[in-house]
Design a protein around this nucleic acid. Structure first.
Lengths: 160, 160
DNA sequence: GATATCGTACTCGGATATACATTGTCCGAGTGGTGACGG
DNA sequence: CCGTCACCACTCGGACAATGTATATCCGAGTACGATATC
């Protein structure tokens, strides 16, 4: 049970977008280059985020992706949801209903499913409690002056 | 990010084993038949549980699988761990270290990884808090008399 | 009749195919900017 | 000199291939039970 690496890619990409002035974006190629990632595959993942309403896409020259709402209103869970989907990790196929001694009450989920549901709820709650603004702020706080300057220069090259 | 269906299969199989008298087991074929599952594939999953020390295997006629320790000491997490492995779902590949503006401090995990680590810890904690004995007790409590009789008869057929 | 030995049936264990999902790439659709042309 | 139009470069979007993992199966290794032959 492993998470798609697209989650890591887009989470870092969105963190970068969160550091930009409001309304300003970057093309997928630039987001990929920032971490030396495959441009085409990064573009594919960004599409998923656009469909989910996490980012907005702007076509044409000077276009790209930008956050669809304030970074403080975007949680890590939204990104996971956009890439991985909303399906629970544990999918109960009700095997208890089959076999020579089938269970009786199918209106309620089986005990095993209940535990997994509860565990996954706790997992999601943690991811929902952290916003992109939180992450961006933490990253910015730890950055050295040299890194800040490097980032500023790179952004100027990208934004023109 | 979906969990292997082997987790569901083996979790239900172990719940059945937990309902048996201590020291008594069932062959993989019987565990599969109990829920109409593919016998060969069920056997493969039970092997994983045996390697992890959750169950013991007994070869030869009259052999099979039985719990390796009391059901109260086996958690759902152990079963997940045996089937899925201990690898975290979110694997940080440190992409922040690459690209034109690499991060500075690599001794500490990045902020995004930290959040996922915390979330997964919460998830595992829930699974570790429930034992097979808890599940078996709950299943037994909800069972109707008819179902109990059906189960007893089936077990007698299997155990001789 | 008791005991040792062989054979047989049963079960686990790992090696081996197959199906499906994820990963990765490409080309067409759409859009804004830019330059040329005409008024 | 200004406005309009057409072209072009740029970017997203979805369709299409390659790879890896999970799924599914089979055959060999090992063990207990039972039958048989011998003492």
């Amino acid at each position: 049970m492993k998470m798609s690496e697209g989650v890591e890619w887009t989470a870092h990409a969105c963190t970068l977008l969160a550091a930009l002035p409001p309304g300003v974006g970057l093309p997928a190629a630039a987001l990929a280059e920032f971490h030396y990632l495959a441009p085409a595959y990064m573009a594919k993942h960004m599409q998923a985020l656009a469909r989910a309403g996490v980012v907005e896409s702007v076509r044409g020259a000077g276009g790209g992706y930008r956050l669809a709402k304030p970074a403080s209103e975007i949680t890590l869970w939204e990104i996971v949801e956009a890439i991985e989907g909303v399906e629970p990790t544990f999918r109960c196929t009700e095997i208890r209903a089959q076999g020579p001694c089938p269970g009786s009450d199918f209106r309620k989920p089986c005990e095993i499913t209940s535990v997994f549901r509860k565990a996954e709820t706790a997992w999601r709650a943690e991811l929902k409690s952290v916003s992109l603004a939180d992450i961006a702020a933490e990253v910015g706080r730890k950055a050295t002056p040299a890194r800040r300057a490097q980032l500023t220069q790179w952004l100027q090259e990208q934004l023109g």
